[in-house]
Design a protein around this nucleic acid. Sequence first.
DNA 1: CATACATGTAAGAAAATATCACATCATTTA
DNA 2: TAAATGATGTGATATTTTCTTACATGTATG
Lengths: 126, 126
Amino acid sequence: MKEKELRRSLAVLPIGTVMKLANLTARQIRYYEEQGLSHPERNAGNRRMFSLNDVDRLLEIKDYLADGINIAGIKEIYAQQQQKAEQQAADLARPLTDNDVRQILHDEFLNIGGFKSKHGPEFPTH
Amino acid sequence: MKEKELRRSLAVLPIGTVMKLANLTARQIRYYEEQGLSHPERNAGNRRMFSLNDVDRLLEIKDYLADGINIAGIKEIYAQQQQKAEQQAADLARPLTDNDVRQILHDEFLNIGGFKSKHGPEFPTH
DNA sequence: CATACATGTAAGAAAATATCACATCATTTA
DNA sequence: TAAATGATGTGATATTTTCTTACATGTATG
């Protein structure tokens, strides 16, 4: 569902629409951005343009505030989420390169030996 | 998927966004509306507000025009689609009301007879 | 050639949004 | 308790976006 993700991250909504969707004032929306919690894009005329993901983020902020968490707390929450995401990206990227390395080594052995490995289902053995 | 349908029909996009999404000029978008092919909503300030369905419709119009069909032709296509939709709605609605009628009659027979049918044929014949 | 169709363009008004500054009200802190 | 802070309201003013209306243009068609 790459398509859906792309759609959700398209910055297509002006602040007036977002105000209605999230039930927030323009002041609140701009303040959360000023505090580094939200990062809407800007169009050529400097107007903020929001994606559906941006709206979700604003609703999340609103919930946190309603739960008594202040902006500093929310900022910390997002910082930790960011860290976790980075770690996961690293975890995901490392095995791939390891596999690449093995593949390369494997190929080199094949070339050197002039014959194919007999184990593993990957190639016919005869 | 009622949720998705609701989302797609929410009028949240200003004309500037739609111009970019559909790659049409404001003139074109307004003209298609003037010709009765598109029906965007208006906000309190009389600004056109489009849904994703509206954008799809505009892309469709664009395709038809690119295929050499003129506006009158497109109008006719949509008129026929409208007719078909109405017919289907009627087809869908009629059995329901028929069932309602049977149910009502059945209930009335019960009331009159003062006893319940033991099922099979819906009402006792004597 | 005259017409109609689809679109471009310009003018002026109204609406939406931007930034900035100051106000307010509740909560914390000194 | 006074002072500071945090989240939001409000007002002023500038800029951008969109609206309607009118006229222009190019292309195809009778």
